[in-house]
Design a protein around this nucleic acid. Structure first.
Lengths: 125, 125
DNA sequence: TTGACATATTCCCATATCGGCATGTAATGT
DNA sequence: ACATTACATGCCGATATGGGAATATGTCAA
């Protein structure tokens, strides 16, 4: 088997950075393909192909108007993603609390004990 | 060019359904690889490979304990995804309001006017 | 040391991607 | 009818994937 199709999922469709840009661009208003091309600086065929993928998973809707086709993003289709991610919210809050506690403990210690430099709390990724 | 690497992004890493399952499974507690294999019913090498991808993008952390390696998901790394999706929240609320208004209008109409069958509000995808 | 256990890595293959370029198609204007 | 505009589609090539099977690495135990 190979990687899952880009059209198998909102998750897969959204994995492509350009498609994310397109979605953001089309979030507020309906736009013809030409404007997307101009605004994002992509090749027209490329945009058309991305739009096809997005349409297949319901992330954008299309409407014809003369010779133009107006696209808009269907925000509803992004909700599953949002909800899946939200599932982890409590866990990253836990982690933040731990970091916070650690920081507070360190501050207490350094303010009572000495003039140590503040420790670097940045997580090494 | 081909598709972006699965390790280029949290978005790309998370596009794979099995990886999402692994992340959920490892959200609450640290677990050795063997338990993941047993719990999700995947082949061991497959799990190891997925874990490698997840680790490369910081979605999981690993700790050695004897001959086992304990993995846990690093929820922090999921936040960018959550925040990106949240960007569209106001738009899907707009859409919901529109659907709601439409439904209410329809109800008003049908209750004053007649016994028309309720229209199908399901969006055709 | 030898063996068993826990994971990781490698090789192979079928599949699909994305970009670039060329071409097809449909609607409009003259 | 013809040219033009606005998109869509087809073909190509380079690349990377994920599963399966086999094998390597590393750790503990006797």
């Amino acid at each position: 088997m190979a990687r899952a199709s880009t059209t198998s999922d909102a998750f897969n469709a959204v994995a492509e950075p350009r498609r994310r840009e397109i979605l953001s661009y089309l979030a507020g208003a309906e736009r013809p393909v030409g404007e997307i091309v101009a605004a994002l600086g992509l090749e027209q065929p490329s945009v058309s192909k991305h739009l096809r993928v997005l349409r297949n998973v319901g992330l954008v809707r299309m409407r014809c108007q003369g010779r133009q086709k107006l696209y808009r993003t269907n925000a509803e289709a992004i909700r599953p993603l949002h909800e899946w991610a939200a599932t982890f919210e409590r866990y990253w809050q836990h982690q933040l609390n731990r970091v916070k506690e650690l920081a507070e403990a360190t501050v207490r210690q350094s303010s009572t004990a000495s003039n140590f430099p503040t420790p670097n709390l940045k997580e090494k990724q």
